[in-house]
Design a protein around this nucleic acid. Structure first.
Lengths: 224, 224
DNA sequence: GTATGTTTAGAACGGTCATTTGAAATAGGA
DNA sequence: TCCTATTTCAAATGACCGTTCTAAACATAC
């Protein structure tokens, strides 16, 4: 592998681990087995390297885990939701997939690339998920309800990224349901949970619409 | 307000905005209208100030939004869940509550206080939520299922913290359902979603248990 | 008044970091 | 082999930051 390739790979690791500001050029070069000056010689600056690291992370992530989970767009909405959640969880749980970690850091500590990241990665995903959710909710759902449901569906997958990742100390071994073979169970559980929530939201929407058409003069009561 | 009080308040803001490493003593003192040397004079070091800022953020947060949402522990589990989610969302959406933001930064970029934060804040919350969830799921639920459901319930509230917070630019005004009066709608939606997911999980657990007792020789089939 | 504790301003020290520099090493083609 | 362009290397540069120090101004209590 050439020097710039090794540097790029080390940079993705380092940026995903520590974020832009806390990652140091020196450590990246040490990891890559390259000289300090390699970054500026091959990439021009730390910022350019960061941009390239983003592109690289995205390439790797898309190649390893297609965002739709391999479910064809002709499949029923529930299956497409399952595929997308599966892909998200694979990315969140796997150690090799670093794009999501870079994304969370970018959201928390924007470096100027944030707008581009939102535009190229987050927004498309949000829109796709919104389409699936709208299909599952039916035509009664307004945009706000769809958005909130997307939040409820995607939230758990993103939140799992925050689990503390440390060297394995005796006090707190990772729970069994985060072990290697458990992705299947977790994806199943998260999907079922999301589908149940969506079914219930749809039921409430239809209930409210039914009540409104039966007694159109009255304000629809908020469900307790 | 005395100088150390002003410095502490500015420190909470600054640490929540930028995290420990990117926050600078100079900026904290500028915000507080105090001299550069004030931090080291009154708090000894940037690290001590950080510890004190944590305690302060926690005091403010607990005073403003009790973690149980004001729902008494004698209330039914569904109501207690509603109260906790309400409190979480209030904290996540409000601009004044900075503890959650510090927590996310600490989880992403641990500074050494992480273990203490987990022990004092996150773990109790997780355990409380686990008790509520277990009560809602019934006795058939194993620990892994409870943990995964807590993830599904808490995830959306934490994920909402990641919404990009910027100065209001023309391209992307915040969606209406994140406006000031919408907390009620959002809390209602997230709670209902969570309760529906929990009901469904319970139903699946009981179904599986029923199938297992009816045909104990056979392995329980995984639900599609 | 004196003494003690607090605050301010400015300068300086030591450390880390990204970047630059100039020379040495290497590769490839004539 | 010689020449040239590219790559690698170690050291230096300049900026930023946390911290410390000094000296002076200010407040409060005795």
């Amino acid at each position: 592998m050439t020097t710039p390739e090794r540097v790029l790979q080390a940079a993705v690791q380092e940026f995903a681990d520590k974020g832009f500001h806390e990652a140091t050029v020196a450590e990246i070069c040490r990891r890559a087995g390259a000289n300090i000056a390699a970054v500026n010689y091959h990439f021009g600056s730390k910022e350019s390297l960061y941009r390239e690291a983003w592109r690289q992370a995205r390439r790797v992530a898309d190649a390893a885990h297609p965002p739709d989970g391999g479910v064809p767009s002709s499949a029923p909405a529930a299956e497409r939701l399952r595929g997308r959640l599966w892909a998200l969880l694979e990315r969140a749980l796997g150690d090799a997939d670093l794009e999501l970690r870079m994304m969370q850091r970018e959201l928390l500590n924007p470096t100027g690339l944030l707008d581009q990241v939102i535009h190229e990665t987050i927004e498309p995903m949000r829109l796709d998920m919104g389409r699936i959710v709208r299909e599952l909710l039916g035509d009664l759902a307004d945009d706000a309800t769809v958005d909130m449901c997307v939040l409820s569906v995607v939230g758990p997958c993103m939140h799992i990224l925050h689990r503390p990742r440390r060297a394995p100390p005796p006090p707190a071994p990772p729970p069994a349901w985060l072990g290697p073979g458990r992705l299947e169970t977790l994806a199943e559980q998260v999907t079922a949970f999301a589908l149940a929530g969506l079914r219930d939201t749809r039921r409430r929407l239809e209930e409210r619409a039914g009540a409104a058409s039966e007694a159109p003069a009255e304000t629809a009561l908020r469900k307790r």
